[in-house]
Design a protein around this nucleic acid. Structure first.
Lengths: 168, 168
DNA sequence: AAAAACTTTCATTTTTTTTTGAAAGTTTTA
DNA sequence: TAAAACTTTCAAAAAAAAATGAAAGTTTTT
């Protein structure tokens, strides 16, 4: 297999995974392209390699930067901006967990907390409160677990957590 | 707040979360509705409560059943089918992890394995193989971790794993 | 201060995903 | 075995999401 073919397979698969996790295909493909690129790429590099428009690249690259997994790189003597992806996959994973915790878990925990503290007397209210309470508790546990993982250094995964989970 | 209002907020929030995780809004809302319903619901109950068509209910309920988090219930003396969601949130979470592992993680691990074993000589190939290799290794670790979690009983989360992660 | 080199925005178009609902299919009842 | 009660399918419509590209905006150079 040629390098180019292998790269295309990888980019395509990464894009497909993204769609399964609520990430748009192009954003995931740009991430994949930057991961496998040795050097930082310009907007035009990305446009031509993925065959997409300037506006599309701009939007998705900025989204990737807002997730903290792609960074702007300025090269001496060059006016244009280049982009590079964090290459340490553990750091990337933790960064994504961190952001999803902030953007998704915390808000739902707040809602669940509010719903739980409502004074609902109607019939059926008990079952509702039980379900909400259970999910809230589960969410809080997940939240604590993520806090722990995110605070640890990037070696938590291969370190003691993995030893605990896999070997024991 | 009235029960109905609280329920609507919950269903709506559950639907929104779904979309962030690659699950269609309606499927997540049906799941939410079944979670907070004390009794199993018929297709028509779901249609009227969520204001959606018969075909839509049928499709999404079957999808939820394929994930193993919603079950068909037959009532004595009734011809129609009723549906109920697994109410244990830990079991539900594990079931989802199990399915996603099978449907998404395993296939990508297979691809990464293939790409890794390719004999690529071209320049740039080394960086590509390093990235693919790193992700493959990360995926294998995740896979092992999930295997462990899924094999354990439903109390892993509050049990020793949580003690390990949160308290230590 | 004008031109050049670049980035960002966003109304419009395109693509993709989701929903509808009527017809076809199936099972149960009379 | 015919009708009734129900479930499933799927082509078409609708809705939602993503992509385009040209114009506007910004920064740097001359």
């Amino acid at each position: 297999m040629e390098l180019k073919e292998a790269q295309e397979k990888f980019i395509s698969a990464w894009g497909a995974i993204g769609t399964h996790w609520g990430i748009n295909r192009t954003m995931a493909q740009i991430h994949a392209l930057l991961l496998i690129s040795n050097n930082a790429l310009s907007t035009e590099d990305i446009m031509s390699q993925l065959n997409i428009s300037r506006g599309n690249v701009n939007m998705n690259v900025r989204e990737l930067m807002s997730w903290g997994i792609v960074h702007k790189v300025l090269k001496f003597g060059e006016r244009k901006e280049f982009f590079t992806a964090e290459k340490d996959i553990y750091k990337t994973a933790i960064q994504i967990l961190k952001e999803r915790r902030k953007r998704e878990l915390i808000p739902i925990l707040n809602l669940l907390g509010e719903l739980q503290s409502e004074n609902i007397q109607e019939s059926g209210g008990e079952h509702f409160k039980k379900v909400v309470g259970d999910i809230h508790q589960f969410g809080e546990s997940t939240n604590k677990m993520l806090e722990k993982m995110v605070k640890a250094d990037e070696h938590w995964f291969t370190g003691s957590l993995m030893k605990f989970l896999v070997k024991k």
